[in-house]
Design a protein around this nucleic acid. Sequence first.
RNA 1: GGAGCGGUGUCCGAGCGGCCGAAGGAACACGCCUGGAAAGCGUGUAGGCGGGAAACCGUCUCGAGGGUUCGAAUCCCUCCCGCUCCGCCA
Length: 442
Amino acid sequence: MLDTKFILANLDLVRKATDDKHAASPYIDFKRFAELDEQRRKAQAENDKLAAEKNKISKQIGQLIGQMKRASDADRLKLQSDSGKLQEESKALDEKMQSLAMTFADCERWQDEMRAWIPNVPHESVPEGTDPSANKVVREWGGEPRKFEFKPRYHHELGADLRILDCERGAKVAGSGWYFLRGDGARLERALVSWFLDVHRTRHGYTELFPPFFVTEKTLYGSGQLPKFLDQMYNALEDHLFAIPTAEVPVTAYHRDEVLEEKDLPKKFCAYSACFRREAGAAGADTRGILRVHQFNKVEMLKLATPQTSWDEHEKMTADAEHLLQELGLKYRVISLCRGDLGFSAAKTYDLEVWAPAAAKWLEVSSVSNFTDYQARRSNLRYKPAAGGKPQFLHTLNGSGLALPRIQVALWETYQQADGSVAIPEVIRSYMCGQERIGVNA
RNA sequence: GGAGCGGUGUCCGAGCGGCCGAAGGAACACGCCUGGAAAGCGUGUAGGCGGGAAACCGUCUCGAGGGUUCGAAUCCCUCCCGCUCCGCCA
């Protein structure tokens, strides 16, 4: 969430961000926000003044009672009546304070509520625009798309023929949008996850985490999924837990409510997790195969950085994800999302899209974002500057590195052979016991 | 799931109704001492909010939330988390 003072000092900026991000809602009323702020500060100032007085009186009573213990009988009576009077005064103050305290708490609660619905402000380098058509292609890698000397087959055809993907049985067991990977398909999935993690760990310097797949409401709130995206999440009502839509959620919460040392920054984590998404409202889109599913595997990268380095780290993280695609030999492009397509909590996002040659489509396989201090404020993630001074909010960044099974889709389609088999990319072979191609699975 | 114990500052740990934002120790920082270091000694070291140009002042915070009281880390209630024992279990 944004800082209250920042919102008030930059109303136009915040209002535009809210509109551009299609986040305007009845919960947000900037005029009311400013009024609440004034009311809140007034109530607090008044309340604090009375509290100071009351504390003074209580202290005096304490002293009188102390004196009473040592006093003669005659003096004791006098002291007793004095302290009685003070007690009355204190009670009177208490009554006055009650309504002030209530006003204060109400104002603060409403402000916080409103802040929870106000999105992050985009970085100035983010393209203007209201929908994906305004997104900018930053760069493309991989040259000309592969030319096939035969008619390339779609991933769902390849998956079925090679018996590495079984959507029918997935649907039987769990419903539409659920699937089985089978044989070498399942093995390739596992190999890719291991390879992703190993590259990030050994070559990109990330610490590996294996996170919980279910988290509390508070945790989801911290990374900005709640309150806005409640309907996109699976939950276990009985236990008040939600299935994570991405490892970003538990890993962002990892250092929640902590104050880190600047010398330990940036913190870099990578984490595998299954991701669960209800995809409510997406029915009808990408129905064939496994382009849009309710459960998928993903390796996530996450960084906690200072505001001074976060933009640099954002570019580096993007490069880390690209590195994987390059080694897999997959054609891809990097897109800078426009203001209207940017996520709720993000200040800037690069999407990485791989080319699926049979479908002749770009598939989003990674989304690398800088959230600046937006999530950090929600999650109370801070650091102590090396130069001294008050703790500051960190900047959080995260990006997929990478998301399955779309990578599988691109691999199958890109590396399919005339005989119907699929070649396994060089870098993955050692993770597949040296296997070089996927033929029909027994 | 049942029974018992416990959650205090960066950490350990005392406090069990007022003089407690909190003893003592450790750690860290600065200063003294030293040729230099260790030991010694001295000083300092939480966060939120509000006010103030600042120095600083006020207020709130001893797991969270509520209650009793003029006054709560201390008493009462609810919840959360941890530990020990028992039960169950991959």
